[in-house]
């Protein structure tokens, strides 16, 4: 089974954590991304995630392999939700086990940062006001409306951190 996966049902971190257990590991670090009720000052009612899964799994696997090679951790995994999510639900889980805590923290941070930048997953926010928008796409789609047209880069990552 791939260590980078998608799911349409709620994520259960306890079960995932057990898969990383290893007698040689003294440290485990995990990151959970939750659905927040606001974004850039707007009240969010619910979220919708969509992924280009064939490529996303390949790119996600590459990120996990990079984290293992770079930080020398023992195991790394990531599960991302797709579909409709309510406030407080778990959108993404990253788990890493390693001989020592330092590498586990670094690898966990690396994986979530890279996933947000590189993996073809999209998020649509539905606001309390009734309208909705694709994060990172809508404002950029109308650069003329902005006073200063920032140069668009290929990566094009705004900061939309959890």
């Amino acid at each position: 089974m791939s260590a980078f996966r998608f799911t349409r049902t709620p994520i259960e971190p306890q079960a995932l954590r057990a898969q990383l257990a290893d007698p040689s590991c003294g440290g485990y670090a995990a990151f959970e991304g939750w659905v927040r009720d606001s974004h850039e000052g707007r009240r969010v009612r619910r979220l919708e995630y969509e992924a280009f899964e064939a490529l996303a799994v390949r790119e996600g696997e590459r990120i996990l392999a990079e984290a293992i090679a770079r930080f020398g951790v023992a195991h790394a995994a990531c599960l991302h939700r797709v579909g409709d999510l309510g406030i407080g639900e778990l959108a993404v889980w990253v788990g890493v086990s390693a001989p020592h805590r330092h590498e586990a923290f670094l690898a966990c941070r690396y994986i979530i940062d890279e996933v947000k930048q590189r993996v073809p997953i999209w998020k649509k926010e539905h606001y309390l006001s009734g309208d909705s928008g694709w994060v990172n796409c809508e404002r950029c789609a109308a650069p003329a409306a902005e006073a200063s047209a920032a140069p668009a880069s290929v990566q094009h990552a705004h900061e939309h951190g959890h």
Binding site: G33, F52, L55, V119, W122, V135, C137, A157
Partner: peptide, 29 residues
Amino acid sequence: VAVNAEFADWSTPLKDGDAVVFIPPVAGG
């Protein structure tokens, strides 16, 4: 852009049978 489920260059020559996906700015996590 992705061609046949792998990232590709915008100047990659397209071949008969290719599957193409244009990838908007991503927002996982």
